[in-house]
Write a protein that binds this DNA or RNA. Structure first.
Lengths: 401, 401
DNA sequence: GCTCCTTATTTTCCGCTGTCAATGAAAGAA
DNA sequence: TTCTTTCATTGACAGCGGAAAATAAGGAGC
């Protein structure tokens, strides 16, 4: 994260305090005792950590008439005051920049889109800056400061350095995006891979809360996957991780843009589906929606394309489950609009290819409105904000077993 | 781990002390300052943590005439006294039990094998107990106590509970092996999956030292994979992880015992290779060694089988690399005896299927004498011993991001 | 209304850890 | 011998978090 101006920083200076705050943030209102249990700390530690956070306005106390115990002193609930700080999340796609203004609880307050004139870093930066400016004005209207900007880009991203190593889509190499955007906007900037950003949002605010191992699979223009192992998002040694889209499911399958044959992405991405539906039906469908329309109309060839796509996705998920044993897999993405067309095939292929107890993995689906991608970016900004101080565990020194 | 008798336990009561000990154990003799740098602590902390460990005899001080700095006070090296405690590692295979006696540095002092009369838990336990007895006598001869027993079994194992959930090979279900073995032998027992045990050995004493993400791929009777992510061995939510052997590389390939077609294991395991070589050449080779002999003799059909096997393994490794971005992959296993036959194909298939920077992953091979499997079991026992007290990080409470 | 019981939270005390800064130690160099 | 350099140790200290005791806030029984 790159932080240019000396903004007021988050007052959780101990690892326990930040752990407690994260627990409250993710698990909604909790009594102090609940927090203690969840975080594995004593009640005394929670009381102590909570006080300065309440004083600083990040936590507030609530009385909950419902959850009162049958007997004894009623508990006070502690929750995060979402309005205490705002964040901006920006997702860069091929032709648009999506931006959202969220509160500290990562609830979207405002969403804006701007078309992207070109893909060069300067163009993207200029458009992003304009979008940020608009959102900052909205934030001013609310009278709350914006505490961070998160940017999500597809490709290989080094979050720690804030550098986009390589984005095939944007044709960028080694662009120090965090630094550039920090200079332009004056905000602390976090840059991360788009799917990982989405995964962070699920981990903190979605279906991944409380899980130490899960996967997010996105189906749409591409097939992506974010992985959480041992409670942390996997980033990969060289910025590559979660490339489920390039798991081979059929070495005799269609050629993929990556050079191989039969990658999941070459069979189940929007583009691949459109291409296959055209080939199977002869109808020159314009896009994935039209292709799904044909399949919904019961056109045989089109349905079969979705069968095959579901099969590929299910195999890809089974591969992840066999290798990592996640507790849950969350399927999401724009492609979910056609979910009814391949849901059964995903499940069937997963069940067939999952090995032993890996099949017990819980598979969920979640719709993914396009703004969610930008919300993921905001989630990374929130994460950076909360960890802004010396809260990182084990900084310095080698990774220990 | 199940510990029946109140044996003297390891005197590292703080997380820093156990971290320091682990550093010295893995990185050989180090000066205190080196240790401090590696562990991310101050020199003072190292001095303080090291003293009781020296007093207890686990660490010893050496003077190193070589590594003396050009100027200034010469450094004193600290290293682990391997002879301070012994461990027994036991690996259960289908027809044999292999046992090793190791020192605290996991060096094999004695190795013994016993044939297995049957696969029922009682039979295995009886034979294992006899093997342990023999090794305990050896240990007595050295005058050093045995501080722990590690057992490695293939299949789904719950290490924390010491229970073998399901071992298809042994046809076991929910066998509380740690408890049973502890009662029989009177030693603290750690039970883990065999490939994970091997991975622990690599992580602490082998090619995985200092890496926060790597994979161990074993090639032989089966194709296995141990994964380390974020510095910890991946165990999977339900005891399943690293099943690279059941990654599909060719949906039209030969049927696998798991029910699917074209798993890596159905193409590249010893059995699969023997079957394919027989089919291709018509020669009724007896085993993998004979099959490799044919291929070495240049018999076309046989070579091709190895080409295909290498391709399958390479694709499997690429899948791991694409999903997790490990820093290194260590290929090992009995099948390595024929490594020259498929090395090039593994590398070629990996290079072709690895996506983007995932291809920068370092691929190494290590021979794996059969005793190494048992050494892996000993490594888990050493790990449990060092962590025997309150050293587990984050015990209690939920996994935090 | 008063007392007792139960549960939640806070306070007080305390030990422990690890850092900082200063000091000691052990060379070689001047 | 004295200085310089590097490694190691010590003492003072601050902060964290746990345990247990104390306090708070109800409801129930009388």
């Amino acid at each position: 994260m790159s932080s240019p101006s000396a903004v007021e920083s988050f007052p959780a200076h101990t690892s326990a305090a930040s752990q407690i705050f994260t627990t409250v943030l993710s698990r909604g209102p909790l009594t102090r005792l609940e927090v203690a249990r969840r975080a594995g700390l004593s009640a005394a530690a929670v009381t102590r950590a909570v006080r300065p956070l309440i004083e600083a306005g990040y936590l507030v106390e609530d009385v909950d008439e419902d959850a009162r115990p049958a007997l004894g002193r009623p508990a006070n609930l502690v929750r995060v005051d979402g309005g205490r700080a705002l964040f901006i999340g920006v997702k860069v796609t091929g032709d648009t920049i999506i931006g959202v203004l969220t509160d500290l609880c990562c609830r979207i307050l405002v969403a804006r889109h701007l078309p992207l004139p070109a893909r060069a870093p300067e163009a993207v930066l200029g458009t992003a800056a304009e979008l940020v400016r608009e959102l900052l004005i909205e934030a001013d209207g609310l009278g709350v400061r914006v505490a961070g900007l998160g940017m999500a880009v597809s490709g290989e991203v080094d979050r720690a350095e804030g550098v986009v190593r390589y984005s095939p889509f944007l044709e960028w190499r080694d662009v120090p995006l965090a630094e550039l955007a920090a200079m332009t906007t004056g905000l602390p900037v976090t840059v991360d891979n788009d799917v990982r950003a989405l995964t962070v949002a699920e981990q903190w605010f979605g279906a991944g809360v409380g899980l130490s191992g899960f996967a997010v699979v996105t189906v749409g223009a591409g097939i992506g996957c974010g992985l959480v192992v041992h409670g942390r998002v996997v980033a990969g040694a060289h910025g590559v991780a979660g490339e489920i889209g390039h798991v081979t499911v059929d070495p005799a399958g269609p050629r993929c843009h990556c050079g191989n044959r039969g990658c999941v992405e070459a069979i189940a991405s929007d583009d691949a589906i459109v291409r296959q539906v055209r080939a199977a039906t002869g109808v020159q469908v314009a896009d994935a929606v039209a292709a799904a329309g044909l399949a919904h109309d019961g056109v045989g060839g089109a349905r079969q394309v979705y069968t095959r796509a579901g099969d590929a996705i299910g195999r890809g998920i089974a591969t992840v489950a066999n290798l990592l044993g996640p507790e849950r897999v969350i399927i999401s993405g724009e492609g979910l609009a056609a979910y009814d067309l391949f849901a059964d095939h995903i499940r069937a292929a997963f069940a067939a290819a999952a090995f032993g107890s890996a099949a017990r993995c819980d598979i969920q689906t979640r719709p993914l409105p396009f703004d969610e991608w930008a919300r993921g970016a905001a989630a990374t900004a929130i994460q950076s904000f909360i960890r802004s101080d010396a809260n990182q565990r084990g900084r310095g020194g080698e990774q220990q077993p």
